[in-house]
């Protein structure tokens, strides 16, 4: 076998493994990224979704819904996209960006319980006004 052919074989092996690792990685670790409305549609169409499938929900925190228990390190709040609203419970530390302001966007990762509450395993937050200019005087 010529060196060129051997190399092509090796190259195909590498390209193949990269492709395999990517495909397998997406299958094993990919999670749905949904809005609350899409989550409602998913659970309506497929009841096994509840409790079994992990997902991320991107939505706004409902103002005034945040209940913190600092000592127990748990936080309860509601997320909404204006169409559907879901309660969330999370045990852990939320980032500094999760404040009590009115325009917090969050990405909640977790699963939906039978009681309709999202059990979060991770919460990311982004404050809408974060990098904007001074409020108008």
């Amino acid at each position: 076998m010529k060196a060129g052919h051997k190399f092509l074989l090796g190259a195909a092996l590498i390209v193949g493994s990269v492709g395999f690792l990517i495909g397998e990685g997406v299958k094993e670790t990919g999670v749905y990224f949904l809005t609350p409305a899409e989550l409602a549609a998913k659970t309506a169409a497929d009841p096994t979704f509840v409790e079994n499938v992990g997902f991320k929900v991107g939505a706004k925190v409902v103002p005034g819904s945040v209940r913190r228990d600092a000592a127990a390190r748990t936080i309860d709040f509601k997320v909404s996209d204006g169409i559907k609203t879901y309660p969330v419970t999370y045990h852990g530390l939320v980032p500094d960006t999760f404040t009590d302001a009115n325009d917090i966007e969050v990405v909640v990762e977790g699963r939906l319980g039978r009681d309709g509450v999202i059990r979060a395993t991770d919460v990311l937050a982004k404050c809408g006004s974060r990098y904007e200019a001074v409020p108008k005087a």
């Binding site: 690792l21 990685g25 094993e28 670790t29 990919g30 999670v31 749905y32 949904l34 991320k56």
Partner: peptide, 17 residues
């Protein structure tokens, strides 16, 4: 549908490579 992959994906693929 939007599907996201996070650190587990990147570790899984890139650690062996």
């Amino acid at each position: 549908t939007k599907i996201t992959v996070g650190p587990p994906f990147f570790d899984r693929v890139n650690v062996p490579l």
